[in-house]
Design a protein around this nucleic acid. Structure first.
Lengths: 228, 228
DNA sequence: GAATTTCTTTACTTATGAGTTAAGAATTAT
DNA sequence: ATAATTCTTAACTCATAAGTAAAGAAATTC
């Protein structure tokens, strides 16, 4: 009954190991800088075995990129019962914890660095990650507007504002400083401020919302959703 | 009296040509992907001549990076007589026109992509570009606060908000899509919206300022400050 | 204007990395 | 257990790219 032979099982496991190794090495050295030997060594195999799995360096690179499909998927879509401010607050932390993960930053750096040579990967990543997330935020903000809790003309701009206020600064810094992992307290500073500004600009009852936000920011930040 | 011989003159010109060529090729292919032959060819010389000017690939790369010292320098520092809203509006366009220039984006992509291997270049660039600019914005915003025109606790956060609201979105998109130069109308959309949100959140007289901003945004955008 | 110096080039050396071939180890089926 | 098959490896080929040495062109000095 073992339709899945031990061999096949090993093959699959090894493929995962290869893709992880490829991620590590490509992120460290870039596409041209990464050697197939180095990737094989990182995966604990040798080069010809690697070619058994992927016919070329480019194929491996593409497969790896496509493998990293949106972990940052539907962070949130629908309003909860806890109210908008808490939704936004938890969302902000969730998003921050994902986007600021070292491996996510390394992936972003790699894509940005190689996008000149692999334009389709830039597009793919944009659509699978940021664009989908933006859609989620837009949907949520729209529902808040429908409920009379927010006021805006253009949902896309509002969503971009939210992201720009909360994460643009720490992420930009992090992209330029790979050695420096920003402490959680720094993130809190940007998240609290960003939400404050967003609510001041967009809320239909800013005073109430800001009071509630104050309460939330006095508590310790929510636990990180965990690493990959 | 020609202390500067023709030779020296040529040398200097050629060094410029080499650095420009290096920028072009490095930006296109990354550090590892760029060949010294390709750079030499781009500069209209051959490889050994190149080594007369720079002792190694790494030296050339570093020199080039250091050569691109902040063109985005003191975009603005002091309040003008035209009033805060116009200052901010002109500043936003000035900054956008600089930051969204294809060569600036290519440079940013290159640095982000190579920062894992050249951390000091990431730091240098951050300090020479973004950090200095942020200081300029902070100084200006502080003066507005002193004049009673803006209200905030933390000048750094306010400055980051301004940048995040205006340029985070178009720049992030542009970083991932090198083939797509964002049209000026798109920039206008983000700039107008960003300033609107910023003023709503930070101005001491939001109604007045938003009216004035409306007037400005009805005019055609200011002429681009020109290419490098 | 001829000699010296400096700069530029053609032609090399060496190393590293992508991709392959043939031999050896492990696994499945009888 | 043994034969057949499949997977893995050590050793190789070929191309490209970093860096160099010696020959040739150009400019400066006497």
């Amino acid at each position: 009954m073992t339709q899945i032979s031990r061999r096949e099982q090993n093959r699959i496991e090894r493929e995962h190991r290869i893709l992880e190794a490829a991620m590590t090495v490509f992120a460290q050295s870039g596409y041209s800088g990464a050697g197939m030997d180095a990737i094989a060594a990182e995966a604990g195999i040798t080069k010809p075995t690697l070619y058994q799995y992927f016919e070329s360096k480019e194929a491996l690179f593409s497969a790896m990129m496509r493998g990293f499909r949106n972990e940052m998927l539907d962070v949130f879509q629908h309003p909860s019962d806890e109210g908008m401010v808490q939704d936004l607050y938890l969302f902000a932390w969730d998003y921050a914890d994902t986007v600021m993960r070292p491996d996510m930053l390394a992936l972003a750096r790699l894509i940005i660095g190689e996008v000149g040579r692999f334009p389709e990967i830039g597009r793919y990543y944009q659509e699978a990650g940021p664009d989908r997330l933006l859609q989620g935020i837009m949907t949520y903000l729209d529902s808040c507007r429908a409920a009379g809790r927010l006021e805006f003309q253009d949902a896309e701009l509002a969503a971009e504002d939210l992201w720009g206020l909360i994460l643009s600064a720490p992420r930009t810094h992090a992209l330029y400083k790979p050695d420096l992992v920003p402490p959680r307290a720094d993130l809190a500073r940007f998240i609290h401020n960003g939400l404050r500004v967003f609510l001041r600009a967009y809320s239909t009852r800013p005073a109430d919302d800001l009071t509630q936000l104050e309460k939330l920011t006095r508590l310790p930040p929510p636990a990180s959703t965990g690493d990959a």
